[in-house]
Nucleic acid binder design. Structure first.
Lengths: 208, 208
DNA sequence: CATTATCTGTACTGTACAGTATAGTATAAA
DNA sequence: TTTATACTATACTGTACAGTACAGATAATG
């Protein structure tokens, strides 16, 4: 209506995509409960009845957004262990991949949305999130590094928890809760995290 | 009505308390948006109009609950540095104080509630949370430990962030998001956190 | 032009909620 | 007994929302 040019010929998948994008915007800005289907339809530039033609319900639309997003995240190539690159640089790769989730407004919004829904409506996301092994790549990488003698630890799972725990506890959650306002303070903390991790699990002395 | 015995003489503060408790229960079980004033009044065993006699609005009631809870939390005595107790034991005290927030269902519910509201309605809690310095006691303790030669670090603020980051990232958030289901797995992770921390900041060698 | 399918705005149903009005009840004090 | 206070149940107002009905518009195709 307000956009004649782009209406030359919208295929069904394009219209579906348009709805998903509008819904993503509204959901990530307001959370699940405070998002209305009217607002979503308006933001998508689509009639509310059309939204219901593509998605059965608000819950369904929400779940489609989440699984679409997770599908895209899965397309990121895994980081494989290298014997030649410095360990610290490779750790930094994992750290940057984690930070990607919160640097950009869009993935950050989805992360906020997921967290808030998970807190009081876990059933809405549990199914969609089932079978996701977030630390899997890192665990594999850890084992390779241990094999190579670059790291030392008892169990890879525990070590992975420490690394991602520091990342999430020091950075991810702060950035999510402040909606990105603490992003400028990332660097010194990130450096300290790597120091601490390598001090405990590295085989070369790094302690100042 | 259904409880004659306890109605011998309820003072105003007792009735206020009754409402606060009912509201706490409803809010912590359902989150802010999904909690209705009708449900709160019913849970408190009180007429809805009485709720509005004590609290101006739903937002106001929510904020009173939060500030009441934070007031109680402030009453916890600070942990002061001891030259004789092992450093690891003292660190464990801070860790247990942090875990208190998520072990018991009631403080855990409040923590969940605060987190979910903070994500998409920060204005509701920002004022109430302003001026809270959560790591203050620990920072003071850190400086004392450094003075005593028991710990070594550059800046206490960064070191405190690492400690609480590990605690929150590895434990607090997992426990909140699973509503306590991961509590049985705390011990080995907690031990590892202390190991890692002392490995980097301790002055006695603890690395295996 | 006629047909078909899809989309649109508008308006509706039924529900739920925040907050209020009212009329009445229980209690305590005088 | 009277009076004042605090509460209660019930019902209401106005709003917002999920989801649907409908009648008309638009576009592609024949």
């Amino acid at each position: 209506m307000e956009d004649k040019k782009s209406m030359v010929k919208k295929s069904a998948v394009a219209k579906r995509q348009k709805i998903l994008e509008g819904a993503m915007k509204v959901f990530t800005e307001n959370g699940f409960d405070a998002s209305s289907m009217d607002h979503i339809a308006q933001t998508a530039g689509v009639s509310k009845i059309t939204v219901y033609k593509y998605f059965q319900s608000k819950e369904n639309l929400f779940q489609e957004i989440v699984s679409d997003f997770l599908l895209q995240s899965d397309e990121k190539k895994p980081i494989t262990y290298s014997k030649t690159r410095p360990i610290r640089d490779q750790l930094m790769d994992f750290a940057m991949a984690e930070l990607y989730r919160v640097k950009d407004p869009i993935p950050r919004g989805v992360s906020k949305l997921l967290a808030s829904v998970y807190l009081f409506k876990p059933d809405l996301v549990k199914q969609t999130l089932a079978g996701k092994h977030f630390y899997e790549d890192f665990t594999i990488w850890l084992e390779a590094a241990k094999q190579d003698g670059a790291l030392t630890f008892e169990t890879a799972a525990l070590t992975a928890q420490i690394f991602y725990g520091m990342m999430e506890g020091c950075l991810t959650w702060n950035i999510l809760l402040t909606d990105g306002a603490t992003l400028p303070y990332v660097e010194p903390i990130l450096a300290e995290i790597l120091d601490v991790f390598l001090c405990r699990y590295g085989t070369q002395k790094v302690k100042a």
